[in-house]
Design a protein around this nucleic acid. Sequence first.
DNA 1: CGCGAGATTGATGGTAATCAACGAACGTGG
DNA 2: CCACGTTCGTTGATTACCATCAATCTCGCG
Lengths: 227, 227
Amino acid sequence: MRDTDRSAVRALHLFADMTEASFEAVVRGSFLQSFPPGVELLRQSDTADFLHVLLDGSVELLAATAGRETTIAVVYPVASFILAAVLRDRTYLMSARTLTRARVLMIPGQNVRAVFAVDPAFAAAVVDELAVAFRFMVRELKNHKLRTGAERLANWLLLAMDPGGAVHLEFEKRVLAARLGMTPENLSRALATLGPYGVAVSGRVVSVTRPDELRRFAHPDPLIDQV
Amino acid sequence: MRDTDRSAVRALHLFADMTEASFEAVVRGSFLQSFPPGVELLRQSDTADFLHVLLDGSVELLAATAGRETTIAVVYPVASFILAAVLRDRTYLMSARTLTRARVLMIPGQNVRAVFAVDPAFAAAVVDELAVAFRFMVRELKNHKLRTGAERLANWLLLAMDPGGAVHLEFEKRVLAARLGMTPENLSRALATLGPYGVAVSGRVVSVTRPDELRRFAHPDPLIDQV
DNA sequence: CGCGAGATTGATGGTAATCAACGAACGTGG
DNA sequence: CCACGTTCGTTGATTACCATCAATCTCGCG
C-alpha cells in the first residue's frame, strides 16, 4: 500500500482510534485495489475471507435466489461492507458488484478478528460500524414494506435535492431504480406521478418546484430516512 | 433479581464469558419483569434507555409510519432486542409489543456501554449478537423481496414441521401472517394454494404430506432460511 | 448521419391489500 | 346444557401496486 493511501485509510473512522501496532497488524496482508465498473467483488455463499472497505466509487450489494435478483443496498465511500460475515466467519449473504470504477481496501478476515480481540478502540469502532449497518437495514426494510415506489422516490428526492430544489443524477436512472427497489420502467412512471407535486425531469436533472407539496405526498420520517 | 433468575441470566450467551465484576456492573440497576400479552414494551422514536433480553414468551417488533404498520420480526427466547439502538445511544427504530405473557430482563443502556468498553469478552459477545441480528435482517429483506407470500409460507412450513410432516401452530394464524409479512386473508389463500403440493390445514395443525413436492415449490435457500 | 444504449410509454398479468360478508369455534351466562 | 355473542378464520369481489414484455423514443457518439 502506498503511503498516501495508508494515511487515508488510517484516518477512516474504523481505524482512527486504534493503536499503531494494531493498525499495522490489520493492514499487513491487506491490499488496496482498483476495479472497473461491473466487476463482481464477491459472491454470496462464498466464505468471508476479506473485509471490504470502499474508498472511492460505488458498489452494489445484491442477492439472488431461485433465478431472481434484487439490490439490497448501494454503498458509497467511506463505508465497509459485509462486516458481519467477516466477524462471524460465515459465508456472505450478498454479492457485491462495482457500479463505477472503485477503489477497495481488502483486509483479511482473520486480521480483523484477531485485532478485534486485543484492541478495545478497534472493537468499539467495529461495533459502531455494525450497529450503523444494522440500523440501515431496518430503515431499508421499513422503507420497502411501508411505502410505495413513488413514496420512496419522493423521499429520496427530498433528501438529495440542493437548496434550489435541483437534483443532479450522477448515475444512470437504472441504478437509481435498483437503489429504490423498483424497475427502470416503474421509476419512469413514478417520476411521472410526482409531476402534480412539482417534480419535473429534464435529462439527468430533476427539479422540485414545490417542496412543501412533495413533502405532504412523501410523509418523510426521521425513523426511515437518513438524516 | 432472584438468585435463580440471576444464574439463568448469567448463563446466557451474551453474559456467559464476562468477568464476575462486569456481570455485577451490568446487572446492577437491571430488572426482570413479567408482562401480560399485548403490552407495548417500548415505542419507536423513544430514546434507548434499556437493553431488553427476552427470557420467556414472544415479542413482536413492529414499525409504523404515515398510519401504516408492519411487523419487522418476532423474537423468541433467548434473544436480546434493540441492541443497536442501545449501543449507539440513539432512538429506537421499532416498537416492541408482547405477543404472549413474557419475561424480559431490562438492562440500563449506560451499563451496557460502560461494561462494553472494559470487558473484551462481553464486547465479543455483543458483537456476535449484533452480527447475528444484522444477518437476520438481511435474510428477512431477501425473503421479502425475492419471494411471494406463498413461497415464504412454504419455506416456513418446511422448517417448522416435525419429522412426521406436522406443524402445530402455537399461536394464532394472524400472528403467523404478520410474521410472514402478509395479511390474515392472504395467509388463508396462501395455505389454499399450497394444497396441490400436499399441504392440508385442520384447525391449528398443518400437515405436509408430500415434503419433496413442497420443497420443489418453495426453493429453500440456506442463505435465506434459518438453519 | 446513423447506430445503439438508455429511457419512456403502453398493454397485460401477477401478487397482495382492502372491504365486505359469511362461517366456525369457543367461552360465558342464563 | 344450551343459547348467545364475540373472536377468529375463510371466502369473494375489487382495487392498488408492481413486474414483465414490447414498442417507440431520445440522445450521445462514432
